[in-house]
């Protein structure tokens, strides 16, 4: 059996809110999903390399030449809050 999922923890990792009212219902669905994964444990994968990509390709390299132009005025039209060319967010406290 899989562990019971810690809803508050996974919500925090995903920067999502789960209210106290929802926790039980959300947790039940998440646990049902995670329960599906139990059958993986039964499969013998000894000596099998994890596969991150479907094809055995290798990383291609790009020449170190600048081809991108300044587009900040254009892309900042779709930004929620901008001033003086900067994206504004509620004060970052270190």
């Amino acid at each position: 059996m899989s562990d019971q999922i810690d809803v508050h923890k996974v919500a925090r990792l995903g920067a999502l809110a789960v209210s106290d009212d929802e926790v039980a219902a959300v947790g039940q669905k998440l646990n049902a999903i995670v329960g599906l994964f139990d059958q993986l444990a039964a499969i013998n994968t000894d000596g099998v390399e994890p596969m991150a990509h479907p094809l055995d390709q290798v990383q291609r390299l790009r020449e170190d030449v600048v081809t991108e132009a300044d587009i900040h005025e254009y892309v900042q039209q779709i930004a929620p809050k901008v001033e003086a060319g900067l994206y504004l967010v509620p004060k970052v406290i270190e």
């Binding site: 923890k9 996974v10 990792l13 999903i33 995670v34 444990a41 499969i43 994968t45 099998v48 596969m51």
Partner: peptide
């Protein structure tokens, strides 16, 4: 949330890596 869970400390090997091995099979 499921994705965060399967990658999180303590579950990565049992879920994520295991799934990748199954993927190769």
């Amino acid at each position: 949330m499921v994705g965060a869970y399967v990658l999180s400390a303590g579950y990565y090997d049992a879920y994520y890596l295991k799934a990748q091995r199954v993927r190769r099979l």
